[in-house]
Write a protein that binds this DNA or RNA. Structure first.
Lengths: 165, 165
DNA sequence: TACTCGTTGTTCAAATTCGAACTCAACTGT
DNA sequence: ACAGTTGAGTTCGAATTTGAACAACGAGTA
């Protein structure tokens, strides 16, 4: 590689805005979810994924990749959610190793109670701030970026690689 | 508020791409920085901010807000970096409470060694994936989003609110 | 059947993060 | 000078995350 090509002003602006927005957004979502539903953002995400899955259940590894978390991290969170009664574990008869995380009715109820406020916040702080053009550009551009990262690199397992739906 | 307005397909696409990209990107940067320079992404960010500041030093709180971390989190990280000799603390004579974190020559050297590879990766995985239009839309849209979040909410202190340069 | 791989989910210790409480100073108004 | 308030940075315990190591299986092959 030749000389390092530093970022120009607009590139810096984009990169900083991207990182800053994510940090702030995450902070707000965490606050709101914790306050309104006693959930961390990650926990919400887990419940949300489960709610959208067939039979409201997913295997640990699938779920881990869906929420882009490490296996051990998911084990921990599912443990928490299980204690709270929002999720339960189920074993698979065809594969003894497999464990399904299932959304309980109570978990579903909590999710349904939390979702409207969460979505409203996503709208307020993110979606509705963007013009339709910006929204599309963002979906296209970042969609491509994440796709490329997923397509390459089947090596690292810290977080199980997998496309999100 | 009326009925919750759920996200339509494109909105979901944008939101998911945004979150997914950030997670993957962060993972890659962390990996690379750890491998090449023994730094976490956050530590790199800290060094980078310091390197761009007058006299290569910033007050703890300023730095915390610049890298969008909590005060206690920064205290911890500066402790680590100080042990590694990349940063040192300096007291201010005019204000006893104030503490400056200063980038050492060694810290600067480490940063200079890490920066090219880091920037190259940012380009490869983010900047260069986007079209010029997308880049501008992203800078504008997300810039606006983060600005709004910073402008509101002077209440929460978990992370000291402040615009980044 | 025995053997070798690659997977699955968990465990464990160490590293990090979180947030509230705390310590001192600086500032404000008196 | 004097209380009351605010701000800076640290401390501390609890919660979470990390990554490597592990145990227990499937699956493919000889």
């Amino acid at each position: 590689m030749g000389l390092p090509r530093w970022l120009n002003e607009e590139e810096k602006r984009a990169w900083n805005a991207f990182r800053s927005t994510h940090a702030l957004l995450n902070q707000r979502m965490d606050q709101q979810l914790k306050r309104d539903a006693g959930l961390s953002h990650l926990q919400y995400e887990i419940l949300a994924r489960l709610s959208g899955a067939p039979d409201r259940e997913l295997r640990m590894t699938e779920l881990a990749s869906a929420v882009q978390n490490s296996k051990s991290g998911l084990t921990y969170q599912i443990g928490q959610l299980e204690q709270a009664g929002l999720v339960r574990r189920r074993n698979c008869q065809s594969d003894v190793r497999a464990v399904y995380a299932c959304l309980t009715d109570e978990g579903m109820a909590v999710l349904e109670r939390a979702a409207p406020g969460h979505v409203a916040l996503v709208r307020e702080l993110f979606i509705d701030v963007l013009t339709p053009d910006q929204l599309r550009a963002l979906a296209d551009g970042l969609g491509e970026a994440s796709r490329r990262m997923l397509d390459s690199d089947f090596t690292a397992d810290p977080r199980t690689a997998n496309p999100d739906t």
